[in-house]
Design a protein around this nucleic acid. Structure first.
Length: 282
DNA sequence: CGTGCTCCCTGCAAGC
DNA sequence: TGCTTGCAGGGAGCAC
């Protein structure tokens, strides 16, 4: 389940492709089963012979920039992953491959594999068009930015639309902090000892400061662990992350809190699971 | 323009 | 054992 840290780790790996010449960007046969890819191959023929100049991460989005000025907006969704392969026969074994980027004059290709089809891979005419695209334009501060901009975080929380909402749901709002997903939401609140049901309005300045620090520490630690592997996530070399080994509350409903021994609670906020310790988190 | 709602999709685990 | 059910998850696109 890629969140900001998993996308960041993916980016760092994919950066080895920067500066390389593209032979082709191909949508796979299986991709044509799905409306979001169907009949779109023509959009990607113009990338042949272009150079991949740079890949950027904006929140959980990856933006692929090419020297033909065209840009690809890419999101891993919940099950999407990139696989860097140096053997073409590998491609056949990847069951849900949607896109194959072949590098010129090498055996290397990058394959976008996305079992649940929540991922995105779409072309924009240029970089400015992507920046104007609403989900990108509205992204809030980057949760992985160092040092974490505490004051900006506190200011963003204070927007009137947030005040009556529970902090557990506001943390998933990418227009506030970009890069937090459901796992690190619960883990950050546990680290900050804040109950996910607390309204934003009820949080004292000191508490939001502690929360901001907790978010930053959790996300950084997750990147260092190569992300969390729950079900599907792998980095582009097929390696699993290890952040799930230090999760304190996520997915641990009914298990005992390591700090106080109380059973971890699972609740549903905005149709998303939230896990917390009712004793530690007030 | 922002907000809130439904839908997208498959693999896996739990329950029967 | 084998079937059904529910859950996992972030964003697109739409109506308002």
């Amino acid at each position: 389940m890629p969140e900001g840290p998993e996308v960041e780790y993916t980016l760092r790996t994919l950066k080895e492709l920067e500066g390389k010449k593209i032979k082709s960007i191909d949508l796979t046969e299986i991709s044509q089963k799905y409306n979001k890819y169907k009949g779109r191959q023509d959009e990607f023929t113009g990338f042949s012979k272009s150079i991949l100049s740079k890949i950027e991460r904006h929140g959980k989005f990856l933006i692929w920039i090419f020297n033909n000025n065209e840009v690809i907006l890419n999101h891993l969704g919940m099950s999407g992953k990139w696989i860097i392969s140096s053997k073409s026969e590998d491609n056949l074994e990847i069951k849900h491959a949607k896109v194959i980027i072949v590098i010129e004059d090498s055996q290397t290709s990058a394959i976008f594999d996305d079992a649940r089809n929540f991922g995105q891979f779409r072309k924009f005419g240029n970089y400015e068009m992507v920046m104007r695209y609403s989900p990108i334009r509205r992204l809030g501060l980057d949760g992985l930015k160092l040092p974490f901009p505490i004051l900006d975080f506190q200011k963003a929380l204070k927007q009137s639309k947030n005040l009556k909402k529970a902090i557990g749901r506001v943390l998933l709002d990418q227009t506030i902090v970009a890069g937090i997903g459901n796992i690190y939401k619960s883990e950050s609140l546990f680290r900050a000892k804040i109950n996910p049901l607390r309204t934003v309005k009820s949080l004292k300045s000191k508490e939001t400061e502690v929360l901001g620090k907790a978010i930053s520490e959790i996300l950084q630690k997750a990147v260092q662990s190569m992300g969390s592997t729950i079900h599907t996530y792998r980095n582009p070399y097929g390696e699993e992350g290890s952040a799930q080994k230090w999760h304190e509350v996520y997915g641990k409903a009914g298990k005992l809190c390591k700090v106080c021994g109380t059973e971890i609670t699972r609740i549903v906020q905005e149709k998303r699971s939230t896990f917390y310790c009712g004793k530690c988190q007030l």
